[in-house]
Amino acid sequence: MKVVFIGDIVGNVGRDAVKRLLPWLKDKYQPHIVIANGENAAGGRGINAAITRELFEWGVHGITMGNHTWDNRDIFEFIDSEPRMVRPANLPPGTPGTGSAVIKVGNKELAIVNLIGRTFLPPADCPFRTADDLLDELRRKHKCILVDFHAEATSEKIAMGWHLDGKASLVVGTHTHVQTNDERILPEGTAYVTDAGMTGPRDGVLGMDRTTVIRKFITGLPARFQVAETKWILSGVFVDIDEATGKAVKVQTIRVDEDSWIPS
């Protein structure tokens, strides 16, 4: 099974990149399933129903979230009825939505799990114990499993990769918006990348207007960040999974910017 994972979509610039490049990505990588992190898709904070529909209409099959899940209150109106969207599974019991789902496209099935880290992020239940419980259950019926670990600290992400080696097909980090150059297949067959990177404004600071961010660093004063209006970059990960075993046979990062992309 071939899967493309699109890193954190940031604002209208990121959405435009997805809309433009999805046909190209599908032609180049021939994915059976496309998953995207959408927690910054609406103005850099959260997601709404209209954007969710757009992403699915363009060809995304599943959406993962993160620490900005609840920033747009519109999400409370649809998250419980949208089976293709997952929020961090290690949030408290009773939280709207679900932390795992099975994405079905034709005769292909991919279980997806969303977790959030605890280092430098708001309090959450233990992602490691939550992962153990969820994957033990999912592995009874599904061999192909993707885990989006939305975390700040690289050490926490790397630890999760090793913790889930042989239990997940792909452990991909999100949240920092900076793609890492460490994609590999771990000894027990789990593909791992510390961070998939960002899909959004290339020339901002993590997708935000750089002038405002620089001013805040210099002055220390509060500032309202806005999504930068610059050329786009699309970042993500491609993984090829042996459906018989659930082990990855290939993993490759994806990085395309507006200046280098040649429309086909």
Rank of each mutant, 00 (worst) to 15 (best):
residue 4 V to Y: 05
residue 6 I to M: 09
residue 9 I to P: 01
residue 9 I to L: 05
residue 12 N to E: 10
residue 14 G to F: 03
residue 17 A to E: 08
residue 18 V to H: 15
residue 22 L to Q: 14
residue 24 W to H: 15
residue 27 D to T: 11
residue 29 Y to N: 03
residue 31 P to E: 06
residue 33 I to V: 08
residue 39 E to A: 06
residue 40 N to T: 05
residue 41 A to Y: 10
residue 45 R to M: 13
residue 45 R to F: 14
residue 46 G to N: 00
residue 48 N to T: 02
residue 51 I to F: 02
residue 52 T to R: 02
residue 61 H to P: 00
residue 62 G to A: 13
residue 64 T to E: 00
residue 70 W to F: 05
residue 81 S to A: 06
residue 82 E to A: 08
residue 82 E to F: 01
residue 86 V to S: 02
residue 87 R to T: 12
residue 96 P to R: 03
residue 100 S to Y: 02
residue 101 A to S: 15
residue 103 I to Q: 04
residue 105 V to G: 03
residue 109 E to S: 12
residue 109 E to Q: 11
residue 110 L to Y: 07
residue 111 A to T: 08
residue 119 T to Q: 02
residue 120 F to V: 04
residue 123 P to R: 14
residue 131 A to F: 06
residue 136 D to H: 15
residue 137 E to P: 04
residue 150 H to W: 02
residue 152 E to V: 04
residue 154 T to Y: 14
residue 156 E to H: 03
residue 162 W to P: 00
residue 162 W to N: 01
residue 165 D to V: 01
residue 165 D to I: 03
residue 168 A to C: 13
residue 168 A to R: 11
residue 171 V to I: 07
residue 173 G to N: 12
residue 174 T to F: 07
residue 175 H to N: 09
residue 176 T to F: 07
residue 178 V to R: 15
residue 181 N to F: 13
residue 183 E to N: 07
residue 185 I to E: 13
residue 187 P to Y: 11
residue 187 P to Q: 12
residue 188 E to R: 09
residue 191 A to H: 03
residue 200 G to P: 13
residue 202 R to T: 09
residue 204 G to Q: 15
residue 206 L to K: 15
residue 209 D to Y: 11
residue 210 R to T: 13
residue 211 T to P: 12
residue 211 T to F: 14
residue 215 R to K: 15
residue 216 K to F: 10
residue 216 K to D: 08
residue 218 I to L: 08
residue 226 Q to P: 03
residue 227 V to T: 09
residue 229 E to N: 15
residue 234 L to H: 10
residue 235 S to W: 09
residue 237 V to A: 06
residue 243 E to P: 05
residue 244 A to Y: 04
residue 246 G to A: 11
residue 246 G to Y: 05
residue 248 A to N: 06
residue 250 K to T: 05
residue 253 T to E: 01
residue 254 I to P: 00
residue 254 I to H: 02
residue 259 D to E: 11
residue 259 D to F: 06
